[in-house]
Design a protein around this nucleic acid. Structure first.
Lengths: 159, 159
DNA sequence: CTTGACGGGTTCCAAAAAAGAACCCACTAT
DNA sequence: ATAGTGGGTTCTTTTTTGGAACCCGTCAAG
């Protein structure tokens, strides 16, 4: 199986990763959430080659995560903005960053702090169940197969 | 900048992605959370080449996300188990899968359902602030630079 | 005692992707 | 006439994948 064919797997996560799961793309999204919008700004901040950046921005745009909007005419200039669909990826970015803060910070501490403005404190991101409102642990979640997709589940060993 | 040098950036997210941010690694983690533990099981489910799988499992083990434990002697056989550090990545996996369910599902619907066993309903993953307990939106979070890391923040344009 | 199977890899080569640098184009400003 | 800006594309070299074969220790069967 080639990496570019994983979007054909019957798995939501695989199809998601087909758009955002390769090298650089999640870093591009990090910068999007920090307000970066222009090609050269991405390029300077990431240090990625222009060729790869061009490819990743195109994939994100085709995937509906970013929208290419003109902000001036003559000469036409455009910028990349997060769509609603793109903004829905925010929890992923926050949890990734928080995990890094917890486990990979060096002696200087985390380079960025996130403040939850509605309560005024440092954001302590948790996984919450929107139905009952409680915080969720990995071992409180049970996975069930959609009937019709048999044989894709676990190896029948206890976690 | 090469992809393998991004772990030297002063950004928690970049360092996190240096371990788990490349092609295939997040899919390996998906299977870990579904209970897969053995080399050949990963290989068959993912369809990735053994060479790449070997490399990804090694990186995850070196990063402390998986632990290689022997489950029998003569001949020695080992399996890969999530560590506590690895299990802390669960919110990332859940949000990625849920985003895919929402935006990329085909006519058959999501292939897997996640049930929050403590409330009995389908898990509706949300980003929660552990301090105030409320659900968090992207626009309620403000980012501040750690003094000592100047010049890494946004382009001073309003989101 | 030879053959085959199992789990868990490593080695080889060809093909694809990324790195790095140069170039391009439409327009504006000097 | 020249230089600069934003947003790329094209070129060549290096690195990473994909695909397949091979290896190793052990057990079990014929």
């Amino acid at each position: 199986m080639r990496w570019q064919d994983i979007d054909q797997q019957p798995c939501s996560l695989a199809r998601t990763l087909a758009i955002i799961g390769d090298n650089w793309t999640l870093l591009v999204l990090r910068d999007c959430f920090l307000g970066v919008r222009r090609f050269d700004d991405f390029q300077q901040r990431l240090g990625v080659t222009r060729h790869v950046l061009s490819d990743r921005l195109r994939k994100l745009t085709e995937g509906g995560i970013l929208a290419k909007v003109a902000y001036q005419e003559r000469p036409t200039r455009h910028e990349y903005r997060l769509t609603e669909k793109g903004k829905d990826l925010y929890p992923v970015i926050v949890h990734l960053a928080q995990w890094g803060d917890k486990y990979l910070a060096d002696e200087h501490g985390a380079p960025l702090h996130r403040i939850h403005t509605t309560c005024g404190h440092t954001l302590d991101a948790q996984l919450q169940c929107g139905h009952c409102g409680n915080t969720v642990n990995a071992n409180e979640v049970q996975v069930k197969e959609n009937p019709g997709f048999e044989g894709k589940l676990l190896v029948n060993s206890e976690q």
